[in-house]
Design a protein around this nucleic acid. Structure first.
Length: 763
DNA sequence: ATAGGGTTAG
């Protein structure tokens, strides 16, 4: 049997909602003709016979509708009613429709069948039906019924609009919020507080805060409920300082807040990180004559924890009579955001129950602490206990994948999200673009980018930077030009990406122009990172003098990265004097910067100044500087393997060493000669060659060769800059084994194919 | 006979 619900789609609603207003309360032939598919006025699918007469003697046999727990109970009750002949009675009909509409187990299809038996439903009945659809989250059906109600000449009342509007989602609110406001005005319910409240709610979800505010301003404002409604609307629109302002205004006008008001304002303080105001409200709870309930305590815990006052959060948490999952989650999030991930995990493990948000908070905590492998571990744990990830979870997991170069896991997430219809919103798409870019798959990233209907500044910035570090400088600049034609404005991060594109592609003039356009046309003042880019850009082009001038004239104190860019350029262009200057400046700022010693000794080595190489080595030993240990990551079958130089802990290390020997032989045959000029000096001469030989990226590639099918791309992520020797070797490996090898190092990508690298040996 | 505002995640 058909469900017989009138289901207008949004197109029809768009058509009828305005027209019904002008034909209000009279039968509209136009609308009624269009509603001819309705089971009205006499339905051809009667459940019951209206002709039946009641037999009062059967009454005692009828069970009470109040005892019905499920639709099954109800259907039995209904058949008793039919048999008893009571089904034509209005009171029974009302009670039965109400049951189907308002009971937790109700059934709107059934409600509609019963409703259609009522020859002339009054507006109470229509309201009940509308409420049913609303509770059912079927806003279209609710509006359809509302249109039908007006078409049949039944007037709405104060109750109609709150029911109708309550279930609106964002899209419905945008499309029909204003229209229904017109209905409210026309029918004269503008002054009813419940109706105003519902309208404020609808405007807030469609983001029309001005309209919401106008309604609020026109209201009498005596009752706190509308204040709560407008504060809640500002919170939803992330206008948290407006929420606090309104609360202050409430005080001035001596409108008494309720516990809900305080929950809203404390929550706003948490988002604003305004500990002072939040704590002040907390101290004054009694003066406000408020008895804190669970929601308020949770909001306070979140506020204190979010503002970094973990001690107060703890004491509130520990003194609570009853905690719910939100209390625990707020504490876990507070610890995680302070960087105390392990403490957060301990608390997380003690939680009596965990929901999707708790898991996501924990996952995100590991992500923010750069503990990416643990992100994947806990994500697996979460799935093992059958908690379904949502789009929030996926953003954190995708970010971890991007940092690990875990392409397979990332792809799995994409498939999962499609299969389980997880909402692919702008955050997820941005994370997906980042993943593909950081795995060296720019085309896949770009496909997602092009398919997106809405792009924010993060979308553009991620894509531009991704193209830049993958060596597609020209494409990155094209995209930037395209971005400038949209309404999305670039920010300082976007310009880092754009300048990076110029650096990697060697676009000196474009880079300079863009740098000066930052101030002149975009009103963004370059920070020290932008100056670093400019120095890098000039330095790589060999314009060392201008690079140094840039540093001398920059309006802020140059940091070690700025000097590092100059030092790098001096190494490439073999400028000893300036290189020493830059190195000294860096060591003044950061005596423990191991990378400087490497760069400087490389520079000396290139110029065959071995005595100085030795001096750098001595200096390093004296100061006890530790070089950051290098590691390489490779993902095989969805697992992440980590290699460090001379690694012996891998379970298949023997196979890997055998492969390394084979690779060594093949490389020699192909004319490879180890180049030790870039090898660092903390090892003795005789060890040198052996150590290069075992650089972790080579180990990772050897493992990649033996664990992936012929022809498969090998992707490696390295935490440091790739060395010259490995770069030479991998070029040859790409020929010998006919593989595309993608290495992401600290700053850029190297796509090795048929003996050459996308960086054009310039990195 | 029917209605209002709330706390945790990117």
């Amino acid at each position: 049997m058909c469900s017989c619900t009138l289901s207008f789609n949004r197109t029809l609603i768009r058509l009828f909602l305005p027209s019904i207003l002008f034909s209000s309360l009279r039968m509209s032939t136009f609308v009624l003709a269009s509603l001819s598919s309705l089971p009205f006025p006499s339905s051809h699918h009667c459940l019951v016979s209206n002709q039946a007469q009641p037999h009062l003697q059967t009454l005692p046999l009828i069970s009470s509708i109040n005892n019905c727990k499920t639709m099954e109970d109800f259907k039995q009750f209904h058949s008793q009613i039919i048999r008893s002949g009571l089904s034509g009675f209005l009171a029974e009909q009302h009670r039965m429709v109400s049951f189907c509409c308002t009971h937790g187990q109700g059934d709107m299809g059934y409600a509609r069948l019963l409703f259609d038996e009522i020859p002339e439903p009054d507006n109470f009945m229509w309201n009940t039906m509308i409420r049913g659809y609303s509770n059912n989250s079927s806003p279209e059906a609710a509006v359809s019924l509302y249109i039908e109600m007006l078409a049949r000449g039944v007037g709405p009342d104060n109750y109609t609009y709150p029911f109708l509007l309550k279930a609106f989602d964002r899209q419905m609110a945008i499309e029909f919020g204003g229209g229904l406001h017109a209905h409210v005005t026309k029918f004269g319910f503008c002054t009813n507080a419940h109706v105003q409240d519902a309208l404020i709610h609808v405007y807030s979800i469609s983001g029309e805060m001005d309209a919401a505010r106008e309604l609020f301003d026109k209201s009498p404002k005596q009752n706190s409920v509308l204040w709560n409604a407008i504060i809640s609307a500002y919170n939803r629109s992330k206008k948290y300082d407006e929420s606090c302002k309104l609360f202050a205004e409430m005080e001035e006008l001596q409108v008494e807040p309720t516990v809900v008001t305080l929950v809203l304002v404390i929550s706003a303080c948490a988002k604003l990180k305004n500990l002072e105001y939040g704590a002040w409200i907390h101290r004054n709870i009694e003066n406000f004559r408020i008895v804190p309930n669970l929601a308020l305590l949770n909001a306070l815990i979140d506020m204190y924890a979010g503002c970094g006052d973990i001690r107060t959060a703890w004491s509130l948490f520990e003194n609570m009579e009853a905690k719910d999952v939100i209390s625990w989650t707020a504490m876990v999030a507070g610890l995680a955001n302070l960087g105390q991930v392990d403490q957060a995990r301990e608390l997380f493990n003690r939680m009596p129950e965990r929901d999707i948000i708790s898991w996501t908070v924990m996952i995100d905590g590991y992500m923010k602490a750069n503990r990416f492998k643990e992100v994947l571990e806990i994500f697996r744990e979460m799935q093992a206990v059958s908690v379904r990830p949502d789009e929030f979870t996926m953003v954190s997991v995708l970010t971890a994948c991007a940092n690990l170069g875990a392409l397979v896991v990332g792809e799995w997430i994409r498939v999962y999200m499609e299969r389980y219809k997880v909402n692919m919103d702008i955050f997820v798409n941005n994370a997906m673009i980042d993943l593909y870019c950081k795995c060296g798959c720019v085309e896949n990233a770009f496909n997602i980018f092009e398919k997106m209907l809405k792009r924010d500044k993060f979308t553009w910035t991620t894509m531009i930077t991704g193209l830049a570090i993958n060596g597609h400088g020209e494409h990155a600049l094209d995209l930037f030009t395209r971005m400038l034609r949209t309404s999305v404005r670039p920010d300082e991060v976007t310009f880092i990406g754009v300048l990076t594109a110029c650096i990697h592609a060697g676009f000196i003039e474009e880079g300079r122009e863009i740098f000066s356009s930052m101030i002149n046309t975009h009103g963004i003042f370059p920070n020290v990172c932008h100056y670093g880019c400019l120095v890098d850009l000039l330095g790589r082009a060999g314009q060392l003098k201008e690079a140094l001038e840039t540093i001398t004239n920059m309006p802020m104190k140059p940091n070690s990265r700025v000097w590092g860019a100059l030092l790098g350029a001096c190494r490439v262009h073999r400028n000893l004097e300036m290189g020493e200057l830059a190195a000294n400046k860096i060591l003044e700022l950061e005596p423990d910067n191991g990378a400087v010693y490497v760069l400087l000794s490389n520079l000396y080595a290139k110029l065959n100044r071995w005595e100085e190489v030795g001096k750098v080595k001595d200096m390093l030993m004296q100061r006890g500087v530790k070089k950051i240990p290098g590691y390489s990551l490779i993902e095989i079958n969805g697992n992440i393997y980590e290699f460090v130089a001379g690694d012996c802990t891998h379970p298949r290390i023997e196979e890997i060493h055998k492969k390394m020997e084979e690779m060594g032989r093949d490389l020699m045959l192909a004319g490879y000669a180890p180049d030790a000029t870039e090898v660092f000096i903390d090892i003795s001469e005789e060890e040198k060659e052996d150590t290069i030989y075992k650089h972790c990226e080579k180990l990772a590639i050897a493992f990649g060769l033996l664990s992936s099918p012929a022809g498969a791309t090998i992707r490696v992520v390295k935490n440091l800059r790739i060395c010259l020797d490995c770069h030479n070797a991998i070029k040859l490996i790409s020929i010998i084994y006919k593989r595309l090898i993608v290495v992401r190092d600290k700053t850029r990508f190297h796509h090795f194919s048929s003996g050459s690298c996308s960086c054009k040996d310039y990195w």
